[in-house]
Write a protein that binds this DNA or RNA. Structure first.
Lengths: 206, 206
DNA sequence: AAAACACTGTTATTTTTATAACATTGTTCA
DNA sequence: TGAACAATGTTATAAAAATAACAGTGTTTT
């Protein structure tokens, strides 16, 4: 089955909302509830859910528990996916602790930095190693994803290392473009762009 | 002139790269250079630049300085756009200091938090106030954008305040959906979704 | 028991976005 | 000088995404 990338993103978001509602003791949820909580349309929700072959109960909406399971079958692998994070500054810490406590199949299993103060300490529940030991650590960790939250200057150099040692996907928060071979999936996120976008639409509210 | 939202996002990214190259002493840039640095295609770059009515020199590419100016005319307002940030935890600090030093027309002019330790201190070059004083501060600040980096529990309550006091756009990093009237522009960003997307495409590399 | 209702599921259409094709034009070089 | 080149600018086409229209179906209500 091949799903549109945008649907993949939304599935992840549906799951977050669903878990949220499940915790509150809710059992069923309508497409329009799911939609309004994410600023989507009900049609889009139903279409996405159709695409993954899940069928709700007619009058009551979707069975939250079952839908979560189904989304998991799409998004997750049986085994956990391990990630590493590079750069334990404010952003690195924010992301790492944000992940702790979220129950997902993705786990941040190690952090890397150059600051001697941080080396070998456990920060946000993850042990931090020196960046120069990436190679050796990666051999044991079985990590396929790297989250880059380090300063731009060192980013390309580290990226080269990651490529050599079998990282398959990168989430890049540094503001420089990484030069990476095609077979590695890369997702860039730039906060300045997000804010400038908000500013644009605020200033052009027609 | 009405530009596609996706082009707006890319314009912001072009500018970042352009400034980058200008600092290195580069004067001209080709569409394919700009493209490869952002993992776009040269055609897309040219098309976006066409849309904003800028014309490069035929054989040498675009004049970096001029193109930056033109993009500024599209994205910026004459006066600065002021933003406030709510929640000075790791993420709040990361974003704020990330903005300091970037020369953009958007400025984070105040921070808010509930932690007494932080109140009235200057953190990442921005003064931090108690959240309960939002109302009074907003009257002087002329801020139109709010960046929400606080814990989910308090988010909706604060959002209600923002709406009341004339905030026009919100960049929401909390993982809960905010209930906000339609005339306010809201952009949600969820890190878990980004990582899950990377994980999906890493695991489904066909 | 039948009609109205309020959902979901699916196909059709529209809109948006990206790509491709190609025309245009300075520049270089023989 | 003029032919080849290598870039931009623009129109045409294709692909992706979102929306709309509507069909199907349990449930409720009278």
């Amino acid at each position: 089955m091949k799903l549109p990338p945008k649907s993949i993103e939304r599935l992840s978001q549906y799951r977050r909302i669903l878990l949220n509602n499940l915790e509150k003791g809710k059992e069923y949820i309508y497409s329009h509830e799911l939609a309004s909580q994410l600023h989507f349309t009900p049609v889009q929700v139903r279409r996405d859910i159709m695409l993954i072959g899940y069928t709700g109960t007619q009058r009551k909406g979707y069975v939250i528990k079952d839908l979560i399971v189904r989304i998991g079958e799409i998004l997750d692998r049986e085994s956990n996916t391990n990630a590493i994070i590079i750069g334990m500054g404010n952003l690195g810490k924010a992301i790492t602790s944000y992940f702790n406590g979220k129950r997902t199949k993705i786990e941040i299993v190690a952090a890397f930095d150059t600051d001697e103060q941080k080396i070998n300490r456990v920060i946000s529940n993850v042990r931090c190693y020196h960046i120069s030991s990436i190679k050796e650590k990666l051999q044991n960790l079985d990590a396929s994803i790297a989250i880059m939250t380090l300063s731009p200057e060192a980013a390309q150099e580290v990226a080269d290392q990651l490529v050599l040692h079998d990282i398959k996907g990168i989430l890049n928060f540094t503001s420089i473009p990484l030069n990476i071979p095609d077979h590695i999936y890369i997702e860039d996120y730039d906060m300045v762009t997000s804010i400038e976008k908000v500013a644009y639409f605020v200033n052009h509210n027609d």
